[in-house]
Design a protein around this nucleic acid. Structure first.
Lengths: 167, 167
DNA sequence: CTCATCTAGTTCAACTTTCAAGAAAGAGTC
DNA sequence: GACTCTTTCTTGAAAGTTGAACTAGATGAG
């Protein structure tokens, strides 16, 4: 799927450019902000924190590596490194999967849970202050809809999600 | 500003959680997508590409390092490394600033311009396909408004941008 | 002028991410 | 069972990022 690019490129309109710039600024500023907040208060970057949250919500507080990677939208390689680090911190433990001897479960430890309990309030406050406390309820609804549409279009599975895939 | 956190934390509602998850998924998927697209077609990650674009739009195709860092929302340190790499590729050149002997200008070279001309169409197409071609005009307008509000709240300067900063 | 202070930019070490390669186990075929 | 193909997860090196320390030049007070 090499973006056929027949004909002249359709450039962005002025409004689209402005929206795109605002999108890039807001998303990078927010990501940086959360990374620093969590690095300071929990000693890890945002994505690592997200992994612990996922685990905390999974049945048995454990998940297969591949599943966790898929849910968190990261590569298995990246997850391997991340879990190694979280393991060193004592927040996650690996265990062999009983049903598939290739498999590993990442398990949230008690220390990991405790860490989440301690840092969740500050994290939620940061998210609130950056996003939800600044938007109207209609904007929140609209943002949700927009983000779901975009995510759906980018999911690897839905290769058929390319819009006008008719000639 | 240590997020005072007096009283019980206001957790996210179900809808807010769902919006937050959708936001995280969409933004990470899109960033990954653009990083790969540009790595493949232009040989550099998205943020480096953005630096070249900024330079291409600046008067004289040159900018002071600090200004460039500010506009691109990255640290000066990161910019130093990035420019070093772009310089090695021949797309950017450093020059001493005439008016301030501490200063450096990053200058877009002819090769850099050429590279942009070659890869811009593919990049725009990717952005279009991921975002603008999937949203209605009202959604695009709404997204712009939302992102501007969020960015404004996160700008370092606007420390006074904390919403209810009255007691 | 001299001093302290600030700003511009770089550099170093520690850490994270990526990509390609690889070991090990499951699954299907003949 | 032997073969091939696939899936699961890890590893190692290269590239990128971060935060703190550092150099050099500007700036303002006395």
């Amino acid at each position: 799927m090499t973006t056929a690019s027949t004909g002249a490129p359709r450039w962005l309109t002025d409004e689209e450019q402005s929206v795109w710039r605002a999108y890039l600024h807001a998303t990078t500023l927010l990501e940086d902000h959360l990374d620093r907040q969590l690095q300071r208060d929990a000693g890890m970057p945002h994505i690592y924190y997200g992994l612990l949250v996922q685990l905390s919500q999974a049945p048995g507080r454990r998940m297969r590596m591949t599943e966790l990677a898929k849910d968190a939208k990261i590569t298995r390689s990246r997850l391997s490194h991340a879990v190694a680090r979280l393991e060193k911190n004592g927040w996650v433990r690996r265990e062999d999967c009983p049903s598939d001897r290739r498999g590993q479960n990442a398990v949230l430890t008690e220390e990991g849970s405790e860490m989440l309990r301690r840092s969740a309030p500050g994290h939620v406050a940061a998210v609130r202050q950056a996003m939800f406390d600044r938007l109207t309820p209609e904007q929140v609804r609209g943002l949700g809809e927009i983000m779901r549409v975009m995510a759906a279009g980018l999911e690897p599975e839905g290769a058929g999600a390319d819009l006008p895939w008719l000639r």
